[in-house]
Design a protein around this nucleic acid. Structure first.
Lengths: 217, 217, 217, 217
DNA sequence: CATGAATGAGGCTTCATTCAT
DNA sequence: TATGAATGAAGCCTCATTCAT
């Protein structure tokens, strides 16, 4: 099922084939369990060529992360139109996000699970991606609050926390959706929008909620 | 750094030491990257003893998962008082959850990331844990709705979806809180409570949110 | 299925239990694949006791060989009555031999296969057994020839070769009979007696056979 | 002592070197006691190369058995000329057989002792070899009987039994000859030929032999 | 540009054997 | 007499990585 064995391709193309194979193997088997043999075979090239182009397993994995992170951010960016209202932008962003993760499940596994599961060279790569998305969501939430004329009373901390929670939920849902049969990206996005927008409180007459005081030790 | 090298301990004690070491190593390095050598050394015993008591790397990992899953469920149960109002129960549960995950970060990594990242013997172990917690949350949400006299109109599906999303967000936040300096369990719990209770929608005049129609392809 | 676990038995009895277990395990699994753990467990004692009584795996194996070799020789001796004609003695010996090997298949495996398969400490033990039996057969053949008044013309070398061939065939047949369902010791002995007595030549008018001259190199 | 260390040989050649080494080590030490390290060292290569070419200890052993079984059958076939009388064919076959086993003692040990001593993957391999030889001998015996005009009265069963016994004796003798100083293949073949042709009965007036009735228990 | 040949290092697992009680 | 606790050593196997062509 690997790439058709064609000889003498330009380097850029060969590299992409290798990355395709690597993402698939890394996503399905995990970083440590993936073997360079398997990747080379799936890519339809010999192992020394993989080393010639991509140096080492670590570099290869890093290249995968970078390529897929870039692609994911680009997909989300492409889905959002700048001038629209905040909730519409959030919806569009989520839809683009879940569409991309559903379309590239191995890539999402690599980014969400494998890269974070293994030590420092890789976790940092994903942090950039995540930071960018959290930042985008933070701005949307702030904008939404502004549009709703709630500007005076929204502490920056709380916005950041909400954004973090929303992104965390989205990440979780993306993995869950990929692992579950018959869930579309639209459905996943709608679930999260409902959760975020309506909340549980709205079920209960909107009365605000405050934590009880910490009990004495 | 490892356990003090004491000779001739009863089997039960040694087993716990081994599990302690294993959780730490598995949590920090991942299942595949963890070596039985390292675990044995950290536990202060020789490798054959680890095999004598715990059979194989796979069995050792499973034992870790089971022990930590049991401990986590027990901690959450212990934090919740049955008769109180639903929102208070949810708060108490979340607080206990985040307190436990913050106090046992390696254990949480093992449960949340490592066990899920590697195939079927392990994922199933965690599913039981997760199912139990989702169930608990589902009942709380239903109870909350009942308390708020919203009983007629809450489809079971929606409650289940909300519970899923809430648990997913909690899982993500636990990992995030462990990875972030200076975040207390109370803060993490409060963030999630706010997100879940107030929702984003309450920021915006409470108007319900509906997805736009899918654009033509 | 191991020996019933009874405490405080006299040493001699315990030792026999251990040897019983060892013969069974060595016979079924082979010397190298047999583990002292398995033997101790089957014998119903702890491993250190095995070492206390029998020193080492090598010594244990040697003890097995010696015990079984002695028993086999004794069985054959007991089956033969001194004064009878040579052919009757041979028959009785073979019958006793095949009866014993059929009744103690693991012991026969240990003697015939395992002991010879592994290096020098063990092969020597079995050689004594074999030498004794070959010698017995040699004398019988010589006696038979004498009874038949063929004394002048039977070179010692040829007698020895015939004895060797007969014993070899018997060893082979014992293993084959144990591995084959529904073959009795009598049948096995009869097969060999027929082969030895009648020979193939008797099928062909008894004309003697002589090797062709070696072809020039 | 090992093969001369020549680098970069074509795969087929290296594989034969490895099999040579494996047959020697397996034959001298036994399957379980042989270590892949020793085999690799004797072959003059690193262990991973052995695994790359031959997969596993089990596969390596099987490859040895197959190669040596094939070679032995080929040697016997080459020694026999089809048109000659049956006794001459049998003699030629035995001579070729004992010549080959004497020339390749380790190979014979592998086939006769090691392969049979260890369980099912291997025993089956040798059974094919044995079956082929038994078949060949069976036909020769039948042909000999026919040449001697004994066609009416030779039950198939008896022919088969005689062939079994003859082959068993040959196998035993081959091992014995290899273990005994100064015995040539010609001598071994002659011993067996005499035993088979003349029989012991011819020493004793040719009177047929019948077992005494079983004694009452 | 591309690869067949080759390996050092390390991981999982098991075993014979001993000590301290 | 008897054993639960413990380990040094070794074996099978795999992998990332490099040469020489």
């Amino acid at each position: 099922m690997g790439a058709v064995k064609t000889k003498r391709m330009p380097r850029a193309v060969r590299e992409q084939q290798m990355l395709d194979a690597a993402v698939q193997i890394f996503g399905q088997r995990g970083y440590m369990a993936a073997s360079m043999d398997d990747i080379a075979e799936l890519a339809g090239v010999s192992k020394p060529l993989v080393y010639l182009y991509l140096n080492s397993k670590e570099d290869l994995f890093t290249a995968c992360i970078r390529r897929e992170a870039t692609a994911l951010v680009a997909a989300v960016r492409a889905g959002v139109v700048a001038g629209l209202p905040a909730d519409r932008q959030l919806w569009d962003g989520l839809l683009a996000f879940f569409t991309h993760t559903a379309g590239h499940p191995d890539a999402w596994t690599v980014l969400h699970r494998q890269a974070r599961t293994h030590g420092e060279p890789f976790a940092a790569e994903v942090s950039a991606l995540r930071a960018e998305i959290v930042d985008f969501v933070t701005q949307l939430i702030a904008a939404a609050a502004r549009e709703a004329h709630r500007d005076p009373d929204l502490p920056e901390d709380e916005v950041a926390g909400l954004a973090e929670a929303l992104v965390g939920a989205a990440e979780s849902l993306a993995a869950w959706a990929n692992a579950t049969e018959g869930v579309t990206a639209r459905q996943t996005a709608a679930t999260l929008m409902n959760f975020a927008w309506a909340g549980l409180g709205s079920l209960m007459e909107g009365r605000p909620w405050t934590p009880p005081p910490a009990s004495a030790p």
